[in-house]
């Protein structure tokens, strides 16, 4: 079986390698995209959209339709994880572990036992994963604000430097995930609940599609941000730049919320109770 698999992999690998010979050379000036599409972007993008970063201009404006459905795909991934993994009926676990904070003693309370109150000197801990490290907790506490500010910078500055909604959104989600790993899942869910992640994820997609629909209402084509000039109070070229910013913010919100949502469902196997 292994040999058959290896033969199939080698056959298809060499087929792919053979197909690569028909591609244009890397950076070939005579290849079809380099003849009319790329020169237009390179020469006209700054005049048409006032965005110095060509990649963002192509991603969010010229190919905005594509990016909208990429965001939708990410939201659908979060929804698929929710549908597959989430366990909705509440099950009481076999036993719960608590730590008495002043002494560090761990208590094991069987099903039906009297549980201590969360406030005060008892802290609930997970049965398979017990993060109890002062250095990790303090470091994550120290890093999180910087990480979040950097994520907001990446989202907002995506026009002028590498970055944008996807990258910034993942960093913003990673900040929450780092908090959940270094403390515990329940504390993270108290801060950003499951409903908040679901609502924010769909709100991000709605911001993107809504911006496009608003352009249609104002009489232009879908996602033609030039039509927002009257609303934003700027000229049509600057309006395309601002439209991209609005869209990138939508992408950032959707991606960060979906990252956290997938993390919650994966780490606790859908129970949202004990997890990494």
């Amino acid at each position: 079986m292994r040999i058959i698999g290896l033969l199939i992999v080698i056959a298809f690998g060499s087929l792919l390698r053979y197909g690569v010979f028909f591609f244009p050379e890397w950076g070939d000036p005579a290849s079809p995209p380099s003849l009319h599409v790329s020169p237009h972007y390179i020469e006209e993008a700054i005049a048409e959209t006032a965005v110095p970063n060509l990649v963002t201009a192509v991603l969010a404006d010229y190919r905005g339709y594509d990016t909208m459905f990429e965001t939708t795909v990410i939201f659908a991934a979060g929804l698929a994880c929710f549908m597959l993994l989430r366990v909705l009926q509440r099950q009481v676990p076999e036993c719960r572990l608590y730590r008495h904070i002043p002494t560090g003693i761990t208590l094991r309370i069987e099903k039906g036992g009297k549980l201590p109150t969360e406030s005060g000197s008892f802290e609930r801990i997970d049965s398979n994963w017990v993060p109890h490290d002062l250095i990790i907790k303090s470091t994550s506490r120290f890093i999180t604000p910087f990480l979040q500010i950097f994520a907001l910078y990446v989202i907002a500055h995506g026009h002028h430097s590498p970055g944008g909604g996807f990258q910034g959104g993942v960093i913003l989600g990673a900040a929450v995930i780092m908090y959940a790993i270094s403390y515990d899942l329940r504390r993270s869910i108290q801060r950003i609940g499951e409903q908040a992640t679901a609502v924010l994820g769909s709100a991000g997609v709605l911001i993107y599609a809504g911006t496009g629909a608003l352009c249609m209402v104002l009489g232009a084509a879908f996602l033609d941000y030039g039509a927002l000039a009257g609303l934003l109070g700027v000229d049509p070229v600057m309006a395309r730049s601002h439209g991209m910013l609005i869209v990138e913010i939508g992408v950032g919100i959707a991606v960060s919320a979906v990252m956290v949502w997938i993390y919650y469902n994966l780490s606790s196997a859908g129970r949202h109770d004990e997890g990494l």
Partner: peptide
């Protein structure tokens, strides 16, 4: 831009998942 996405998603998020 692509490298940034690959570093953030490929080397960060996918590893956690």
């Amino acid at each position: 831009d692509v490298a940034f996405t690959e570093a953030v998603v490929g080397a960060g998020a996918v590893g956690v998942f």
